[in-house]
Amino acid sequence: MKDEIRNILRDHARLAAAIDSIGDDTDLYQAGMTSHASVNVMLALEGLLDIEFPDRMLRRSVFESISAIDRAVEELLASR
């Protein structure tokens, strides 16, 4: 799943650095992802995995790292 998240981040997060240099716990906002870009990341994940992030998950902390996104996605996939 983290590879899929990385692909989406590469296409939509507009990070300043190459995606390979981003660790699982790197702060994505510090790496250059804007809140606008995070919306696109969320939409791409929803489209790819056929999930919906509920409003309670629409928070900065949920998208702050690859690990955090992975936890949220796994939770949504498990409850499907």
């Binding site: 606008h36 919306v39 969320m42 939409l43 929803e46 919906e52 992030f53 509920p54 409003d55 629409l58």
Partner: peptide, 13 residues
């Protein structure tokens, strides 16, 4: 514009 993009992900749930 900000609201337009927020509304793309808000579900009202």
């Amino acid at each position: 514009n900000n609201n337009a993009s927020l509304l793309l992900v808000l579900k009202d749930d």
